[in-house]
Design a binder for these strands. Structure first.
Lengths: 349, 349
DNA sequence: CTGTTAGCGCGTTCAT
DNA sequence: ATGAACGCGCTAACAG
């Protein structure tokens, strides 16, 4: 395989007996250039498959049309959905997306940032790790004139736009739905106390209970750490074997809810009749499991779109001082795991 | 936010009263340069946070340390796992990954390729779309001296290394496992006839049946097109309501198997006692559903690693004629959906 | 050991 | 309407 020697402006100029700058301008249809010249140059370029050397262009303009994107975990339904939206949107605007993951480890995140900065992305989209507290490793981007947009998991330590979901409202609606269905003792498997989203959801849960004068209990709130299926299983067991077991469980995320469902199935505790279960994030699998799982949809794809659009806007305007907050509404998806009939309702009471 | 004016080699040279090339070489610890000079330059660079302008370096060396990666679907457990492996591996070797998706549409794939080429990736990792037949849109990479490595879904129309899974063997083992468990009438929900992987799995299925003198029937083979849960449900219904229903089903992928499980559950047909179900790909959810789903693990992460390593090797060696085939062994994961006890075995007979 | 020089390909004044 | 010339920041061949 012999590599093609790439055609340059210089080649075109030489072949056509014009100057390099004329060739350059002709290709851009600069108003100063004669129509005929333009036509001639364009035809020649077309014929010989001239492609500008993007490396030279980038160098000259010091930009790359590449956007960095860092998430905690790539193999994760919600984040991959966000990435999907980001990629599609970026593509539409002529940008590429450079993806990296932090594995929820701050040092990995810091390294990823360095690599991104070194490879000269034009801007950064990031959802911070569970370990991240301050944003020192992100400030380098702004210092170099590269805008940052945070999404989903964000920190206030960085002045930047944030695209987030209304976690409070989503949680509130989920719990209100459980209440409306007739469930009386609603438990919550919550996420980490250091993570804002988790706290928002927990507050939404509590507010809904308070607003509807529902019974509350500290025993019904369990703190997840790994936020996985095993924890859902474990805490569900704890709850159901306690003195005052709940009759509904609101889970910080679907994955945890799957663990809950698993335990309940093993114990032959009927969902939704004996107990209602609702998750958060609306994983693809939520509609596939049996019983299908009610959940709060976060519109991940849309989040990817909005964050990317905002970033591209900032890049174009050299805007490094934007701190707009774009809050997406959640969407309650009601499925079998919480549809309690009146009859069963009575049973519970 | 005022942007820092970046320090250049020229600045260092001027400040230190040396030439630019000396500064450049000193930073690279070139053997010609006096230790003292090296120390001095490095100290100065360190102190003033000198960072080489990567755009200039890339331009000069005509390479970017960026690798393109195109998959049919990003929001897909297997592919996101592959990407995860690719990203981690690339990072280790100083490369970034530029991700794009084709949505299984050839024209999208072609556009993605063009964008990747234009943005000057150093090489390409690709798993082709279901629509892709020939590799004309990929040949441009080789023509420009950029190596390509195909993985999972590959075409022989392009001379390139391929990292694939031994689909035949994986399917064979899955079906053999069903036979060993005592299932007698094994059906297969297969994938598209135009897709190599589907055919390999179908052949593995048939060979296992033949080798063990099992009953076969054309009726037991159903062609999936969308390869989703709905199809699993639909075809399972067709199978179970036919004159000669199977007592086990081997599914082209876990997603289809989930649909199968759903139908069986609705009909209260017991898995694994009345019917065994096995999938392919070992999705995260396979162990979460009830009953947990036996599956064939494809080692997606490892596939991402191997493909990336191979590509980096080709990039470094300017090797464009490699057509090595790296075949990964699958791994049979046995779970509840196929563990038939001896007693039940007798029942079936 | 170090400096000088010559580009890499392109965009952009400044002339003409 | 077009061309000459310069420089972006860095590397490397050549010269001393």
């Amino acid at each position: 395989m012999t590599e093609k020697k790439k055609l340059t402006l210089k080649d075109i100029a030489r072949e056509l007996g014009i100057s390099i700058s004329t060739a350059s301008r002709a290709l851009k249809e600069h108003p100063d250039i004669a129509d005929e010249t333009i036509k001639m140059v364009k035809a020649f370029a077309e014929k010989h498959h001239y492609v500008p050397n993007i490396l030279a262009v980038n160098f000259r303009k010091s930009r790359t049309y590449n956007i960095g994107l860092i998430v905690p975990e790539l193999v994760h339904h919600f984040f991959s959905t966000v990435i999907s939206g980001a990629i599609d949107t970026a593509k539409k605007h002529g940008y590429n997306i450079l993806v990296s993951q932090s594995n929820d480890i701050l040092s990995d995140e810091t390294i990823a940032c360095r690599t991104m900065l070194a490879s000269s992305v034009d801007g950064l989209l990031i959802s911070i790790s569970n370990e991240t507290r301050d944003a020192d490793h992100l400030k380098g981007f702004l210092e170099e004139g590269k805008p940052v947009v945070q999404f989903d998991k964000v920190t206030d330590d960085l002045l930047s736009p944030k695209v987030i979901v209304d976690d409070f409202e989503g949680a509130y609606q989920a719990v209100k739905h459980l209440i409306d269905q007739g469930y009386k003792k609603i438990a919550h498997l919550r996420g980490r106390r250091e993570v804002k989203n988790s706290n928002e959801r927990a507050i939404g849960y509590q507010q809904a209970l308070i607003d509807h004068q529902m019974e509350t209990s500290e025993e019904w709130i369990k703190d997840c750490f790994a936020i996985d299926e095993a924890e859902g299983y474990k805490f569900c067991k704890e709850l159901m074997t306690s003195k005052n077991p709940p009759d509904a469980i609101f889970c910080i995320t679907d994955l945890v809810a799957f663990g809950v469902l698993k335990y309940l199935k093993e114990m032959e505790i009927a969902v939704p009749d004996e107990i209602g279960v609702i998750g958060f994030s609306n994983w693809k699998l939520a509609e596939i499991v049996s019983p299908s799982l009610s959940s709060v949809d976060q519109h991940g794809y849309q989040m990817g779109e909005k964050a990317t659009l905002k970033l591209i806007e900032l890049i174009k305007n050299h805007d490094l001082e934007n701190e707009e907050i774009i809050e997406l509404k959640t969407n309650l998806i009601i499925r079998a795991s919480t549809i309690l009939t009146k009859k069963n309702h009575a049973t519970i009471q």
